[in-house]
Amino acid sequence: MKWPAFTRAWIWPRITDVLDRLNPYLRKLPVWAVYLAGALPPMVWLWMGATGRLGVEPISALEHKLGEAALQLLILGLAVTPLRRHLGLNLMKFRRAIGVLAFFYLSMHLLVWLLLDVQIPQQIWADIVKRPYITVGMAGFLLLLPPALTSNNFSVRRLGPRWRSVHRLVYVGVVLGGLHYLMLAKGFQIEPLIYLTIIGVLLLLRLQVQRKRQPGLPEPRNSLKQV
C-alpha cells in the first residue's frame, strides 16, 4: 500500500499499537473457547428457524446465514498471515480453529440445502450438474474437504511438506465460494463483489510476498512458514 508518507507515519503506529496490545490477551485465550464460541451460532440459528424467529421463510434464511458465515470465516483464515505480517496482530494460534469452523459452517450450509431446501434426491444431482452456481459451490466444498480432513497434528506429521500443498487448496476453495455467491445473486448486487475484492486483495498480498523472496536462497530457519 502506497499512502502519503505523513498519513502512513501517523496512522500506522496507532493501528499497530492497538493491535499489538491485543496480542497478550489473545495468547491467554484458549483455542477450545474459539471452537465453542464458533459452534454456537449455527445451533442458535437452527433453534430460531424452528421457532419462527428467522422470518417467514426460515429455510432460505438459515441457508444464507450459514453460507455467508462460512465465507467470512474462510476469509478470516486467509487474513491471519497478512494480519500478522502487516499489522502485527497474531491470530496464528487460532488459524486451525477458524478453518475447521469454516468447514463446519459450510457442511451445515450444504446439509440445509440438501435436506431442507431441495429435498428431492433426483433434483439434487440435476442441480449440481445443470446449475453453474451449484456446480461451483460443490466444487468449492470438495476442494475444501482434504484441507479440513488434514487439519490435525497427525496429518501434519504424516504428510510433511505435502501438507502445505494440500492446504493451498483453500485459496481456490475460497475463490469458488465468492464466485458461488456472485453467481446466485439476482441483478447487480454489491455484497458479493465486496467479498470477492477482499479475497482478491488477500491473495495478492501473498503473491507479493512470494515474489519478494529471492529464489534459490533457503528461508531463514526460524521463520514460520508464511504462505
Binding site: Q123, R131, Y133
Partner: peptide, 22 residues
C-alpha cells in the same frame, strides 16, 4: 421450462416453517 439457475418444477409455499415440503 427451468430458469437457467434453478428448477421451476416445484415450489415452497411460504408459511410451512423450517421443515416445509416442496
Amino acid at each position: 421450462v427451468d430458469h437457467p439457475r434453478w428448477s421451476q418444477a416445484s415450489e415452497r409455499r411460504i408459511g410451512g416453517g423450517l421443515f416445509s415440503k416442496r
